[in-house]
């Protein structure tokens, strides 16, 4: 029962990701795509340090290591 709840919850989240991305790609949509959100986050800098860029790269690197190396 609890396992089915977890699976259902994660599937719902994944479907929501796909639905929002689909809505973002429609003509004239006011929702930015996930790539645009990432690009905006990556613009963030503190002085000369591209903090947003380093943070997103680091997060994605960790995610790959977590799922593909462990």
């Amino acid at each position: 029962m609890m396992r089915a709840l977890a699976i259902g919850g994660f599937l719902t989240a994944l479907l929501l990701f796909a639905a929002v991305e689909w809505a973002a790609r429609r003509e004239g949509s006011r929702i930015p795509s996930l790539a645009e959100v990432c690009a905006f986050v990556m613009r963030y800098e503190v002085g000369p340090v591209p903090v947003g860029r380093i943070g997103l790269f680091g997060f994605w690197w960790w995610l790959g290591w977590h799922f593909l190396a462990r």
């Binding site: 919850g9 994660f10 989240a13 994944l14 929002v20 929702i31 996930l34 645009e36 905006f40």
Partner: peptide, 24 residues
């Protein structure tokens, strides 16, 4: 590629899947 200088208000919709995933 060029990055947007501002995000439209519709960006808050991304909080929905992120929140559901984060809670679970």
């Amino acid at each position: 590629r060029a990055a947007p200088r501002r995000l439209p208000r519709g960006a808050v919709w991304w909080l929905l899947p992120v929140t559901v995933f984060g809670v679970f």
